[in-house]
């Protein structure tokens, strides 16, 4: 059984000009110990998917349909009160800006100790010892001395290490990491990604890694979900999606990334831009930008269908399946 199962998730934002559908039938699953990358351009709904799972949708956003199952138990119907014990214990979170997670008024040691004691029965001394162990594990030098330091006394990269320790210290089964390295410089980014990979593997933690950076996904994730306009366009093993993308959007996306190893004269480009939520085209949301578009794409919305080793929401493959 999958650790996390998201089925046909719909998230809506009521506005005065009508209801905006920000997520429209998102389905994905994460197996125990697996790293699922969620990639997409800004406005695709990738962060919203993460927020809906931890129950932290900004009002007036609300889950308007579908289910979120953690270990087979529905969590989308839980109240904030019922979700609180789950956060930290079952689902950890890492955000782009470490300062949104860390309380500037408390020492990092106190924050770690409090988080652990909320979810586990630990004496003060044991909790502190564990906190030091966690800080060592995430690579904070001289952890025993720095445990009483405050967040502002750390650099950006070191803060993100502390956040990782904080997200993992109650030993959750699943960590949702939303753009964990976007605010960091490349050399620091490499350190943090390597750390995240190592530490979640050692603890058997599943990761939902949300990022706009295909490179980060390529080296970190086992599987990847490509999102477009609030829908999953393609989902499958990362090597397949990167090397043999099925959905025309994924294909264009991969081609538009400049490569370090080989230089091309012109990058492949997808013309136009992602539609605003107020103007999602009927049928396939990608159809106005797609170079393989045909009549059916404009009228009916495709569901995820198998194509090779991945699944793509594209009529190109549905026809094949129907014919073959």
């Amino acid at each position: 059984m999958a650790l996390l199962d998201v089925v046909d998730l719909v998230v809506e934002f009521p506005t005065r000009r009508g209801v905006l559908r920000a997520l429209d039938g998102v389905s994905l699953a994460i197996e125990p110990g697996e790293v699922l990358g969620v990639v997409g351009e800004s406005g695709a709904g990738k962060s919203l998917t993460g927020a809906a799972i931890i129950g932290l949708l900004e009002p007036p956003g609300r889950v308007a349909g579908g289910q979120i199952l953690l270990n087979g138990e529905r969590i989308d119907t839980k109240t904030q009160e019922q979700m609180r014990p789950l956060r930290g214990k079952q689902i950890g979170a890492i955000f782009q800006d470490p300062l949104t997670t860390l309380n500037p008024l408390y020492s990092i040691g106190r924050q770690l100790v409090e988080t652990m004691q909320t979810h586990m029965k630990l004496s003060d001394r044991d909790a502190r010892a564990r906190a030091i162990k966690w800080l060592e594990e995430v690579g904070i030098p001289a952890a025993a001395q720095r445990i009483d330091a405050y967040p502002h006394q750390f650099s950006g990269g070191m803060r993100q290490r502390v956040v990782i320790a904080l997200a993992l210290c109650a030993e959750p089964k699943l960590v949702i990491a939303d753009e964990p390295t976007t605010a960091l410089d490349v050399s620091i980014q490499a350190q943090i990604i390597t750390l995240l990979k190592r530490i979640t593997r050692e603890h058997g933690t599943s990761v939902m890694l949300i990022t706009h950076d295909m490179g980060v996904i390529a080296e970190t994730a086992d599987r990847v979900a490509v999102m477009y306009a609030g829908r999953v366009a393609e989902i499958g093993p990362v090597a397949e999606v990167v090397k043999h993308p099925a959905h025309p959007y994924t294909e264009g996306l991969m081609g538009s990334i400049p490569s370090l190893t080989h230089r091309v004269d012109r990058l492949r480009q997808i013309d136009g831009s992602m539609p605003r939520l107020t103007a999602i085209p009927t049928g396939c949301a990608f159809n106005p930008r797609c170079d393989k578009v045909f009549d059916r794409c404009r009228r009916h919305r495709p569901g995820l269908v198998p194509s090779g080793k991945t699944q793509a929401a594209c009529w190109l493959y549905a026809t094949e399946a129907a014919n073959g």
Binding site: A190, T194, M214, G215, E219, M254, I257, L260, T261
Partner: peptide, 17 residues
């Protein structure tokens, strides 16, 4: 810097930061 850049060809490989 060159070693630290994640690249599409990096699937499954890991960097030595």
């Amino acid at each position: 810097l060159l070693d630290a850049i994640p690249d599409l060809d990096m699937v499954g490989r890991s960097r030595t930061p």
